[in-house]
Write a protein that binds this DNA or RNA. Structure first.
Length: 664
RNA sequence: GCCGAUGUAGCUCAGUUGGCCAGAGCAGCUGAUUUGUAAUCAGCUGGCCGGGGGUUCGAAUCCCUCCAUCGGCUCCA
């Protein structure tokens, strides 16, 4: 019917069915059935129509050229909408596939979706050897095809027809995908010489793609399964304007400057050595001092919150990990045990601190009056990570967790969880971390038998976590089925300079280890009971935290944390003695400072201090010496005036107190 | 671990199709200069061209292999 409709519409106007389209501003347009989003855009303005990438009809994103056949709400999607961008990038994946297929005939295609920043396509290149040297060629062909303004034509096909097409083409990957689809829900999209199995939606035409950049090439296992064939994944991004591509590339360059690996070396925070081994960071003096300040800060908070510090060894007998259950799960895929030469006893480098802490718990009998029992340790652990996984300080083989374990009764769980969350918030605030994601991981409600612990306890814990998040006004993402088998958890995630997410703080409820270690306490009823355990690490690990912090503040650490808070710049060597005097006064006020005694010009000393991101520069010359003052320059801001050393010290300490204003 | 790329001085990079003792800027050291809010000048030091093996009259340049790094995949207690 729709086919005839178009042709004979004028003669049958009396039979035309009208539909109501509600636009985002709530206005309603009455149009003929079969009108497209593009038609409606055109009726509003031609300029708008030129920018429409796709449309959201009754909540579903569809092609702007697809007929609408019933009353609907409609939003026209442009580059300013995430869904619009997604359409552009998904179509770009097709465009790239078309270009690749023309340049490398016979290649086979896996999947090619849009992603957060662009798109990729997984391709089996067969005998071809492709590398980023081929990018130029592919990009040029893509632009050439884009200029042809190819349309994307959507076609519903039967399963048999779909199978026939890809059998003839010889693409087993598409056939596997089709196999999992129901007859009647299969659609093809055809653009230029390329036809793909695809749900859509797509752009009105490829001409809207004005700028193309292929970003990378990587192996990717078919369907994410490491036992299956590795396809070649090409990442790319496209834009409706060349200028946007330039801006994107500039942003990427900026992000690289924030890379913690670069900043960590420049600011002398940490280093790696091939001789020591990959993934084994070493903290340089400035980094070690900074880390100690972070640790001290947390220790102080924890002390106020009733934690006790403990210290445990770096190795533990194999039996310890058999009891904890970690041996069965990870024994093979971990660092292998070390053995004593005479007795042949086996020890593991500790991959976590909990088993040791459980043994501390049971070293003395506990009564309900001893709970909650909170023990903390900056525990260094070692984990085998596949070599390809290592990444700066964010993914290493040896790292220190700001670990603590809380043993409590099920009734105390909620209060304890809340106080742990408060610690996380205190830390995030002191470091000005406000852009983080909170994730709550709960049981899969349809599959509760795969979790250890009673339903009653799980429900209690899950309810407690949700309530705490709500009471503290946290906008948490809830993931069902993401809980560990031993308990629900809450994680805090932060993005790095390139937008990759890293998990930092974690709070986990555990019903498993108390069982395995047979932990007990005597209740008021004089009966033995099993405590609940909470694992928690507000920083996550010192290494990863400092890495994310470096990127977060682009190397400009908060004043209380930064290695050197001020540098004294004497105008000439004549004022070095006065500079020493200023330095001593600052030391008395617990301000970390140093003197640039080189015989350089002031401009040069300022430049170097600016590049080292030292927060305050104190310039001293004849005038300052005579008056007992310092001229203060703030990093990144410039001259802020002349002060006495005491005034300056007070100003700095007040600034620090504001940041560390911790109310417990 | 897998796919792809990279590896030249502390850092950023040059080194033409293999051919004289491997170069520059910054940093460092020495000296001169004594300086007022983002680079003073001069001289010098510094490299087994990631390690090992091979091809060649000759290798930083070509081949093999190992190591490390980078971007992904898979993993992540």
């Amino acid at each position: 019917v729709p086919l005839f409709f178009g042709i004979f519409a004028p003669n049958f106007s009396i039979n035309i069915t009208m539909i109501n389209i509600t636009l985002p501003d709530k206005s309603v347009k009455q149009v003929e059935k079969g009108t497209t989003a593009m038609d409606i855009a055109m009726s509003i303005s031609e300029g708008l129509a030129r920018n429409v990438l796709s449309a959201k009809v009754n909540g579903e994103v569809i092609d702007a050229l697809r007929p609408i056949n019933e009353d609907a709400t409609l939003s026209l999607l442009t580059w300013n909408d995430d869904d619009g961008k997604a359409t552009m990038w998904h179509s770009s994946a097709h465009l790239m596939a078309e270009a690749v297929e023309q340049l490398f005939p016979g290649v086979k295609f896996g999947i090619g979706p849009d992603i957060e920043n662009g798109f990729y396509y997984d391709i089996d290149f067969g005998e071809y050897q492709v590398s980023d040297a081929d990018f130029k060629k592919i990009e040029d062909r893509m632009l050439q095809l884009a200029r042809e303004k190819q349309t994307f034509s959507r076609r519903e096909v039967s399963k048999a027809e779909a199978i026939k097409y890809f059998t003839e083409k010889g693409d087993e990957y598409k056939l596997e995908l089709i196999d999992e689809l129901e007859d009647g829900e299969i659609t093809f999209y055809e653009s230029g010489t390329f036809t793909d199995l695809c749900r859509g939606p797509h752009l009105p035409n490829t001409g809207m793609i004005k700028a193309v950049k292929l970003l990378g090439i990587a192996g990717a296992y078919w369907r994410g399964d490491e036992n299956r064939k590795m396809l070649t994944r090409i990442y790319g991004i496209t834009f409706p304007k060349a200028k946007e591509l330039t801006a994107f590339l500039e942003m990427m360059e900026e992000a690289k400057k924030r890379d913690h690996r670069k900043l960590g070396a420049e600011l002398e925070i940490f280093t790696f050595s091939q001789k020591v081994g990959q993934g084994l960071p070493m903290w340089l003096p400035k980094g070690a001092e900074l880390r100690e300040r972070l640790e001290q800060f947390l220790k102080n908070v924890q002390k106020k919150m009733g934690y006790q510090q403990v210290i445990t060894p770096h190795i533990g007998k194999v039996e310890l990990y058999k009891t904890s259950g970690h041996y069965d799960k990870y024994g093979e895929d971990s660092f292998h045990p070390i053995t004593t030469p005479v007795e042949g006893e086996e020890f593991f480098l500790k991959p976590m601190n909990c088993p040791h802490h459980c043994e501390i718990y049971s070293s003395m009998p506990k009564s309900y009056r001893d709970l909650p029992y909170r023990i903390a340790e900056f525990g260094t652990v070692y984990r085998y990570e596949q070599s390809g996984e290592l990444h700066g300080l964010t993914r290493v083989r040896g790292f220190t967790q700001d670990d603590a374990h809380i043993f409590c009764t099920p009734d105390q769980l909620k209060e304890e969880f809340k106080s742990v969350m408060d610690i996380v918030m205190i830390i995030f605030r002191a470091l000005d971390f406000n852009d983080f994601i909170t994730q709550i991981s709960l049981r899969d409600p349809d599959n509760t038998q795969k979790y250890i612990g009673s339903d009653e306890n799980w429900e209690k814990a899950e309810k407690a976590i949700m309530e705490v998040a709500e009471e503290r006004d946290l906008d948490a993402v809830i993931e069902y089925g993401e809980a560990a088998f031993y308990g629900p958890k809450m994680d805090f995630m932060v993005k790095d300079a390139l937008g990759r997410k890293w998990q930092l703080g974690t709070i986990q409820v555990d019903y498993n280890l108390p069982d395995r270690f047979e932990l007990e306490y005597v209740g008021s009823d004089n009966e033995k009971h099993r405590p609940v355990m909470i694992h928690r690490a507000p920083f996550g690990s010192m290494e990863r935290f400092v890495a994310v912090l470096l990127e977060h503040c682009a190397g400009k650490f908060p004043l209380w944390l930064t290695p050197d808070q001020a540098i004294i710049l004497p105008i000439s060597e004549k004022y070095n003695i006065y500079a020493e005097k200023v330095l001593n006064l600052l030391k008395n006020s617990e301000i970390r400072a140093l003197i640039d005694e080189r015989s350089e010009k002031t401009g040069r000393k300022i430049r170097d201090a600016e590049l080292k991101k030292i927060p305050y520069m104190l310039i001293v010359g004849e005038k300052e010496e005579k008056e007992g003052m310092v001229s203060v320059r703030k990093q990144g801001e410039g001259d802020i005036g002349t002060f006495t050393v005491e005034e300056f010290a007070k100003m700095v300490n007040e600034e620090i107190d504001r940041l560390l204003d911790v109310k417990i």
